[in-house]
């Protein structure tokens, strides 16, 4: 649990973060969105004290984050940034081992952790471990960046536009990987982005920042239904609302009893993907299958249309 209390950051006369309070529940993904200059990155960087606040406190699991020196705090909190920030003079394995080495883990434990993380990110440990970052593709570098952030098994992972430098295809894959990883470790993730699509895809809760203040902090559906201000509404994009609503639910949730012909949809795909498949195939309904491949029902155009309508 991260409790942010009345935190303020000023640089000279400019207030970048203005009296922000919010509580981030454990094992959730919280996405902070906003235009550039809204203070979203500064807010996040105050959690691991890369930026020191002017006023206010932040508590992590009940303890003030000023109780220990900044560098020790940062070793307990994972941190991944845009353009990955891998150390170019160290191999992939050495990069991932950075924080465990700083913490003085035993060699064997470090090696095991590196191997575990590489395979979790679908990278062959024997092949990729000894390579240098510049020998990897952009998507691979990004995965190693996240693996490094997770190496010391932190409860909290902070991510600053982690997928910003990736092309759309790789980005979608990276987002899905992140969701899987989060489920695997139960990590509390705080992610900063300006991409609303990404926010709705990943977030349990979204915090919208504008001019240093949080204007709305709510679950995605709630935000769609009741945008707190015109700014939030603009940010969401009026034309995108039904699709955003569908993108936060899974096909499994929308499944109705019955059968249908055609290429089956996975239950954990988003409803938006389901709608897309329906429209493209020209059918009114498609079958839905669970993770085990067993059919669990079907989705229909009419059913999705009801779900995409403004909730009453």
């Amino acid at each position: 649990m991260i409790e942010i209390e009345a935190i303020t950051k000023r640089y000279g006369d400019t207030t970048v973060v203005d009296d922000v309070s919010m509580t981030i529940a454990p094992h959730t993904i919280t996405v902070i969105v906003g235009t550039s200059g809204s203070g979203k990155t500064t807010l996040m960087r105050m959690i691991n004290r890369l930026v020191e606040p002017s006023e206010g406190t932040i508590r992590i699991d009940g303890a003030d984050n000023h109780a220990i020196p900044g560098h020790e705090l940062r070793r307990r909190i994972g941190y991944a940034i845009q353009g990955h920030g891998l150390f170019p003079h160290r191999t992939v394995a050495q990069n991932i081992a950075t924080v465990p080495t700083l913490l003085g883990w035993e060699r064997r434990r470090i090696d095991a952790k590196v191997e575990e993380l590489l395979s979790l990110f679908q990278l062959d440990a024997a092949a990729f471990g000894p390579r240098y970052p510049h020998e990897l593709s952009g998507g691979q570098q990004q995965r190693v960046g996240v693996a490094r952030a997770l190496a010391a098994e932190p409860n909290i992972l902070l991510m600053d536009e982690p997928f910003g430098a990736l092309d759309p295809v790789i980005r979608a894959k990276a987002q899905d990987d992140l969701l899987a990883i989060q489920r695997h470790f139960g990590t509390t993730i705080v992610l900063v982005t300006h991409d609303m699509e990404e926010a709705f895809h990943l977030a349990d809760k979204i915090a919208v920042m504008d001019k240093g203040k949080i204007v709305q902090y709510a679950a995605p559906e709630e935000m769609l239904v009741n945008p707190a201000t015109d700014f939030v509404e603009t940010l969401i994009g009026a034309g995108e609302r039904p699709f955003r609503l569908l993108s936060v639910g899974t096909t499994g949730e929308a499944a109705e009893a019955g059968t249908a012909d055609g290429e089956p949809l996975a239950a954990d795909a988003s409803q938006r993907d389901a709608l897309s498949a329906l429209l493209w195939s020209g059918r009114d309904a498609l079958p839905v299958v669970g993770a085990d491949g067993e059919p669990i029902g079907r989705v229909t155009l009419a059913g999705l249309a009801r779900r995409a309508a403004r909730p009453q």
């Binding site: 890369l50 705090l73 940062r74 941190y79 940034i81 700083l102 952030a149």
Partner: peptide
């Protein structure tokens, strides 16, 4: 030095000397 790398070094909890 590339800012992202310096930032990452701070973010992983290295001390100034490290």
């Amino acid at each position: 030095l590339p800012p992202a790398i310096v930032e990452a070094a701070r973010g992983t909890g290295m001390t100034g000397w490290q």
